[in-house]
Structures are given as C-alpha cells and as structure tokens.
Design a protein around this nucleic acid. Structure first.
Lengths: 348, 348
DNA sequence: CTGAAAGCGCTTACAG
DNA sequence: CTGAAAGCGCTTACAG
C-alpha cells in the first residue's frame, strides 16, 4: 500500500496540489469550504506528510543529535530523559549516540550527525577527547552546538554546567568541618574539565583551611565501565600507602561505592575511621550501607536546559538573529548522609 | 556558507551531475580518471550528500525508532546501549522516546515515528497499554516492528523476550530449596505480560512443591518511578498482615531493594527471618547490604537481538522476500547472593 | 480564492 | 564512458 500524497488528495477532489497543501496548513487564502473538504479527506485517507520531502524543502529535520559517553549511568540517563522530554514538547526528536569515552568514536559520531543534517547537537565529551577540531567543524557549519557536563572551555558555544570547583570545595570543606585532617582525593581522568575542576576545588579547600596539600593522596580513577572496580582497587591501595587518611573526596559516586564496598570488606569503619564524600548523587547512594554523602548534580535539569538553549539558538539562526552563547550554571547541593560524621559546631 | 551539492562539483569539473553521482558511488560505468577527479574534489570541498534528498529518493531514512517505558533504569538503559551499538554497526541511527509507562503517550509516539518515516520500530510496552491498535497500525503500514520485554502476545510481530515464567519458577524454587515454607510475591501491574508470567511461574512452583497458593500473599507494586518506595511500603504491610512469611519473590530488583531497606530499618534479618529474591540483576543489587539474589536478565543482549531481527526484516521487505516473525527467547540465570540461604542438599 | 511552475538535491532508467 | 531527463513529495512566490 503506497502512502497517500498531496497529489492523491488533489486528484480525488479535482483541485490543485497547491491548494491542498495550503488548506492543510491553514493558509488564510483558501476558502473555508475547500479547507474543510481537504482536511476531511486527508483524515479519512490517513494522510501523513512525507517528512523526507518536507525536510528537503524546509532544510530542517526537527531532529537533534545527542552524544554521551555512557548510557548505563544514572547521571547521563537522567540527562537523556531531560533532553528528550523537553525536545518532545517542541516537536523535536532526539538521535542518541554513545561515544564510549572514545575520542575516535566521538569524531565519527559528530560526522554522522552532520551528514544526517540534524538541526543541532548536544554533547558531553569523552574522557579521551584531546582535540576540538570536530567540534569547531560543527560550529563553522553554523550548526548549533551545546556542551554539558564534560565541556571544552576553549570551544565557543553555549554550555550547561555546574560549578564543579565550588561543589568540590564545599564537599571537602564538609569533610574538614566533620573533623577530618588528612583527606585523600580519588579524581577522574586527567583531561576532562570537570575532573580538573573538582580536583582544584579539593585542593583549594585544603589550603584555605591550612591543611597541606599532598599530591601523594591524589589517586586517578578511570571513570568508565569499571568505576566500581577502580574504587575498590584504589581504596585498598590507599589504605596500604597511607593508613593515616581519615577522609576521601571522590570524583564520582560509583567509584565511592566501590571504595565503600572495599572498606566494608576490610572492616574499616565508615565514617568513624574514614569518611567518604562522593559526587553526583546516584540513586544507589541512598540505599547502600552506609548511605553516601554526595554532591547532588541535577541531571534532568541539565538536560532540559541544554535543549532549551539549543532550541533558542536554532530559532535565532533561523530568523537570522545574532546568536548569543550562554554559560548556564546550575545549582548543586551537598547531601549529607551516613558516610560522613556530623559537622562540629562553632568552628572558626 | 551553503552546503556543497552534486551540481557544485559537476559545474567545477564541467561534467554532468549524473556522472558525479555515479562516480561517488563507484558505478562501474565511470572511467577511473573521472572517478578520481570527482572523489578528490568532493573531499577537498568536504561534500556531504544531502540526506534529505537521498531519503526522498530511496524512501529509506536509515533511522529507527525506539520507545521505552523509562530511561533512568538499569535494564532499559542496557537495552538502549545494545540497540544503539548494533545499529551503529549497520549504519542506522536510533531515535529514542520515553513513554513514561503511559498508553496515551505511547500511541502519540508511535504516530510521531510513523510520520518521521523511520525504517522500523522497537518497543517495550507501557504498563498502561490496554489496546494494541496503534501497534497493528504499524504492521499494516508494512513497517517492521519488534517488541521486547513487555510484549503483547496477540500482536503479530517478532519478539525478543526471556522465559519469564520459567525464571520466576526457578527463583521461587530456590526459595523453597533454601527452606522457605511461606512465600509471598510482590508482583508488577496487572496488565504487562511479563508481570503475569512471573506471577504464574511463582504460583506453579508453589503448587508443584505441595505448598498451597495463598492469594493474600500476593501484593501488587506499580513499578514506575516509585518502585523503591513501593517496595518499602509493601514490605511493611506484609509484615503487619502476615508475620509468618519467610520468603518473598519480587518482580523487580528496585522494589526488592526497597523491601530490603524497610527490613533493615525494622531489624528484620535477611535471609534468616525472611529471604528475598529479586528480578533483573541491576548493578545496585550486587552492592547493597545484603546483596540480592536475583534473576539475571540480559538487557544488552536483548537490545542487540532486537536490532538484529529488525534489520533482518528491513532487508527482507526491501528485497520483497517473505517476512518471517520470530520469537527470540534469551537465557536467564539465577544469581545467588546473600539475601537467600544456602540450598539444602539431597531434597526430593 | 485557485493553480501553474520552479525548485529543494538526489538517483536511476535510458539513450547515445 | 557520459549525460539529459524524469521523478521522489513537498513548499511557496507569483500570476490570474
């Protein structure tokens, strides 16, 4: 059964394709009578505009692309949900690709999306990403690009982020306020901006509180598929290397949960012997034992904001208005749970 | 900057559009010299075929649609990953929609995808879905449709599932083998097929072991956003209603984790007082305390198989071959952990 | 109020 | 080996 076209309707009603097209789109210069006839027939024939033809004519696909490092991931799947829900409201569909934290794949996927002629792209960078040519390509093609979470500061486009440095500072300050004196940090890979910023926030909090920064207390965890294992491994290593550590600020909840598992196995008491603060507030963190103190990162809202900004820029470009890049910084908060002690009162 | 077209290349080289098109697609009837020239220029101009025009001509979009009930969900996000990874290999992109377990939304989304003219659709039904007209519409438009996990038995299309009944039977049998005599069941909503099948498996295991089936021991949990809370609530209720229960088989891990949280709070010992078996093997289940015995459901593989079958049917239709619907049943296994006791040996 | 016509950028059957 | 031409199904500026 071939799909119904405008010309099928035109033929049946003995009018022109032009008029059918205009009637369906409620142009003011079509008589109400004709409109009614056309619309009725379109309905009974179950007419559906051929999106391929519409796209070709309008040069728009009402589709956007999303590239994320990992899908099976509480934070990122929340972002996906935020983007999709917002896109749907505006009549946009979302094509999702997973870079697997690989720079090479990410480049290929950007290319795929450009070829597909999506109306815009939202991306969170792979840990691997060392070069931003592929991103600048998108911009030079005048295609809206929004980065979120793992961004590249040097790329000129809008960004949706949190204040990673401040959030990390506050998390570390909390450890200090609860009496920790020797605080380690499990950081993420070296390249991602947020991993750098969280590290800097940790360091600054120490220094501001007169605690010497000791690079030996900083462990790197590759936050990919094996985050949990990395957390376990590094927790054990930390204990061997530095048995005087009494607190750890950890880059990601999943790594923190690995550390907790290791400490539970070894009989190390949390928070009495070692306090732990994570980052992201995965759902899991509220149900493990002990529950994890962590930074709440609003994934769903970040997704929503990312799409909203993208939509704004798509419209601006379409109307030939100047495009303004924005840096949208969302609020985070520290969720205090069992993995840290109560803050001491009246500290100076 | 306008995108480069075939005619731009043709003009520059003073040859026809036809020849350019054929050269780029390596038609045998173009001279090697011309091919080389065309390909080189295409490369330097960074030519990208206009997918809208290609789609219009070929009537294919190399894009498929995926509708899932929830995205922030370990099982479903694993399926997404499986589908996307497989689709990418075959050059297909995936548009993802979330039905939020709503029948109305699901209907709208099917319509959206048909309008978008995706090459095929993969779906797991919403709990709400009572009627299958929208699905039969897809089929009558001769568009490939694959259902997975939450399927409708009556709809004639390929399906990727597990043997829910058998898996539930085995899970319940395990509770019996570990000495449980009075076993409750937290089931899912009434409509979904897998929720029904898991219930039937539970029931059959009881009967086969000479344990009377008691409908009062079956609690319904709406497995949506609030699964965890539902698990908590029902666990408390169960304890009030029937303090002699010594085992529970629970429809979904997240609900089971809620139940565990409630029992931990109340000081009810797991598995000594009550044993618990979940379903799905979420990552979380391996890190909570006690770790959860559960049925491993291969989400990633289900996604891969679903796409493979879809791809097969797309090809069959394209080549006017008869389309054969298949029911692909993937293996599950019971993962025994701390929430159940060791099986008694030499039982008859 | 209606419609003929051009054109979006491709692909492909056909002629030479 | 090359190319003119038709056509995929729309939209829209323009003429009447």
């Amino acid at each position: 059964m071939k799909p119904v076209t405008l010309s099928d309707i035109a033929e049946r009603l003995n009018i022109s394709i032009t008029t059918v097209s205009k009637a369906l789109k409620d142009y003011p210069d079509v008589s109400p009578k004709t409109k009614a006839l056309v619309k009725e027939l379109a309905l009974t024939l179950n007419y559906r505009p051929n999106s391929f033809a519409v796209n070709l004519r309008t040069k728009e696909s009402k589709t956007i692309g999303l590239i994320i490092p990992v899908i099976v991931h509480h934070f990122f799947s929340s972002v996906i949900k935020g983007i999709i829900s917002q896109a749907e409201k505006k009549g946009y569909l979302v094509i999702i690709l997973q870079s697997n934290e690989s720079y090479e794949l990410e480049k290929k996927q950007i290319d795929l999306l450009i070829n597909q002629r999506v109306d815009g792209i939202i991306i969170s960078l792979a840990n691997d990403t060392v070069d931003f040519k592929h991103l600048n390509d998108v911009i030079s093609l005048d295609k809206p690009l929004i980065m979120f979470d793992k961004i590249a500061k040097l790329v000129k486009c809008s960004k949706v982020i949190i204040n990673d440095r401040q959030a990390a500072y506050d998390a570390t300050q909390h450890l200090i306020n609860t009496g920790c004196k020797r605080i380690a940090h499990f950081r993420g890979s070296l390249l991602p901006q947020n991993s750098i910023d969280r590290f800097l926030g940790y360091k600054k909090a120490l220094v501001d509180n007169g605690i010497p920064y000791d690079p030996n207390l900083v462990y790197i965890c590759e936050c990919d598929d094996k985050s949990f294992e990395e957390g376990k491994k590094n927790a054990i290593k930390l204990l061997e290397d530095h048995d005087d550590v009494d607190g750890i600020f950890i880059n990601t909840d999943l790594v923190a949960i690995g550390a907790i598992a290791a400490f539970n196995d070894l009989g190390v008491k949390i928070p009495e012997t070692i306090s732990i603060v994570g980052f992201s507030n995965w759902f899991m963190s509220s149900v493990i034992s002990p529950t994890l103190t962590t930074v709440d990162q609003p994934g769903f809202e970040m997704g929503k904001e990312a799409f909203k900004q993208l939509f704004k820029e798509i419209r601006q470009r379409k109307n030939n208005l100047p495009v303004t890049y924005e840096e949208i910084v969302l609020k985070t908060s520290l969720v205090k749970r069992e993995s840290t002690k109560t803050e001491l009162t009246n500290r100076v």
